[in-house]
Design a protein around this nucleic acid. Sequence first.
DNA 1: TGTAGCATGTAAGCCGTTACATGATTGA
DNA 2: TCAATCATGTAACGGCTTACATGCTACA
Lengths: 185, 185
Amino acid sequence: MGEQEWLPTSSYVVLGLLSFDAALTGYEIRQLALGTVRFLWAAPAMSQVYRELERLEAAGLVEAIDESEGSERARTTYRLTDPGLAELRRWVEDSPYEPPVIRHQVALRLFLGRIADRDKLVSLLEAHRDWAAGLIAELDEIDRNIGDDERWANAGLVARWGARFYGAEDSSTEAVVRELDERDP
Amino acid sequence: MGEQEWLPTSSYVVLGLLSFDAALTGYEIRQLALGTVRFLWAAPAMSQVYRELERLEAAGLVEAIDESEGSERARTTYRLTDPGLAELRRWVEDSPYEPPVIRHQVALRLFLGRIADRDKLVSLLEAHRDWAAGLIAELDEIDRNIGDDERWANAGLVARWGARFYGAEDSSTEAVVRELDERDP
DNA sequence: TGTAGCATGTAAGCCGTTACATGATTGA
DNA sequence: TCAATCATGTAACGGCTTACATGCTACA
């Protein structure tokens, strides 16, 4: 058993977004990422998307189609090739489990908060709750918009997962505020 | 109002860990990070810790003390200076709110899972539940070990926050498995 | 005697970001 | 006509990781 080689995850993000549509420009991939993958991974920067597309094309995993008809503006769409789809499936099915990575600035500041003013911590936590509430609203709307579209069934699954995830974030934050209140009212 | 300048967050991780003890070596800082900050941020690599310490020392935020007595093995401890403590407090209290960043490989694979074998997805989700259960056990033990130590009071707060956070992760994952089962039993 | 842990670094490299730069198209 | 959006890139840099390298110390 030789060692399996895997591309960086960002490559699979791009590959994966292309699996939802026949052909997309780099710009459209980015837009799609902002509406979906953003909630569970990072939406790659524009320049990153173009770099991934270059790499994927060189590897034969995507195919570029020049759609700049005549002398109009440049427009290139990309579509998954058969090897590209196979590689995507291989990653989804067989890549080794990686636990989620979180960078939780609020929790970190709270952890170090012994040296800080209590009220400042509380308003930080409140800002965080507002943010979580906003995200949950977005996710609920996404879930509603998906409806019964088969192609996006798993996106609905993930949207509901996300709503639960950020809902827990909200109630945990509230619980922390309560604990702080009890400690020094 | 000029623009505030902030160090990268990893600097505050190191600074913050030093706020818990009088003086620590780079190695000890890393050990402490693995036992605490790991759950809410990344534990920086050893080499990263040393680089931060260099930078912080150059900025006068920490002070190095050579403890290699005689010709023994090299050992340098670091302690927070007064400006270092002030800068840490400034960050905890006044740095702009940053939402948490998650890189959730499992959710991403699920999102793209339309093209994948259902059973492979389910065993991925089960691996994830095992991982979450393990983390929760660790956090509970940390919380018990802290007890009433004033200095670690906020660490307890964060340990309980983490247990709730990863508990939600566990039940959300379970809910997704149930949804998958209902979809195609 | 040997191995695990303590302790400190250097080098190389990828990933991903921000900033910069350019220009077409569409609609108000 | 002007602004927002579409569309594509380049350059530079910072951050962080892995791999490499070294050697002491304590303990079994």
